[in-house]
């Protein structure tokens, strides 16, 4: 075949090296810079959810925040793997993967191996596992396009998918992250902002119960900044949960008709 010459030759993406332009956009100590997408520092991207994206699954959801696009499918409750021990409570199994074209440079999505276990840990506290003993619920996520804040979007989308599948939960799980760049806290960062952040903080919580299921802080933070960031995230989470809830209500009411 003319198109496929034996061994794949080494290739590279023709994108110009962006390192230089970054420092131009984000003047670290300057308070007056604008975000690349013209948002305010404490303004989230418009969130869009839709349930029933994948018909083959028991429940599913598609989420789009700016350029971040993810699909989550939920399967089960179904038979656990044969090798598993007997268990009184149900099991939760999570997997997060990227498409090869999700990242600006092809095939970099496999860098995020920790996402699967982080998704698991953020959801397991919210699901009433006692309702499906001896069985497993599988939550699979695919990131179609990475546009920043990927994991928070996956987690929020997964909880909508779980609700769509009729899995019992104490509350919806909403997740938001903030980036610390210089003196500023910016909420719901996009990819370019994440790549030059000094620190990042992500909260997943159940807003109606006011309970946090996961909190991760990385990088350089001062104590007052952390509490400011946490408060910012919690407020955003409760707003996000309203959007998630209205999406579920909409799909439920359209089913009734």
């Amino acid at each position: 075949m003319a198109g496929k010459a034996g061994a794949t030759p080494t290739t590279y993406a023709p994108s110009p090296t962006t390192q230089k332009t970054k420092s131009l956009v984000f003047k670290n100590d300057d308070v007056d810079w604008v975000r690349p997408d013209k948002r305010g520092f404490q303004q989230c991207r418009p969130a869009f959810f839709r349930t029933g994206a994948v018909n083959a699954a028991s429940g599913s959801a598609y989420a789009e925040f700016g350029n971040t696009k993810v699909i989550v499918s939920v399967f089960g409750p179904r038979e656990s793997k044969k090798a598993m021990m007997y268990s009184d409570v149900g099991r939760l199994n999570c997997n997060v993967s990227y498409t090869t074209f999700a990242t600006p440079i092809r095939g970099q999505g496999s860098d995020h191996k920790e996402f699967s276990s982080m998704l698991h840990k953020s959801l397991e506290g919210a699901i009433i596992l006692e309702t499906f003993p001896k069985t497993t619920v599988d939550v699979f996520a695919l990131i179609l396009e990475s546009g920043g804040s990927d994991l928070p979007v996956v987690i929020s989308c997964a909880s909508v998918a779980l609700a769509d599948a009729g899995i019992m939960m104490y509350d919806l799980v909403a997740s938001v992250s903030v980036s610390c760049i210089g003196k500023n806290l910016i909420i719901d960062p996009i990819l370019e902002e994440e790549s030059c952040q000094d620190g990042s903080l992500m909260i997943t919580c159940m807003p109606s119960r006011y309970e946090v299921t996961q909190l991760t802080v990385t990088g350089e933070w001062s104590a007052p900044k952390i509490s400011e960031g946490v408060q910012l995230c919690l407020d955003a989470c409760s707003k996000l949960a309203k959007i998630m809830r209205s999406c579920l209500k909409e799909s439920a009411s359209s089913l009734e008709e």
Partner: peptide, 16 residues
């Protein structure tokens, strides 16, 4: 001549 590399994926989301 250039080249085309084609890959088809079935991620776990698509089917039980």
């Amino acid at each position: 001549e250039g080249c085309i590399a084609i890959d088809f994926h079935m991620p776990p989301i698509c089917s039980p």
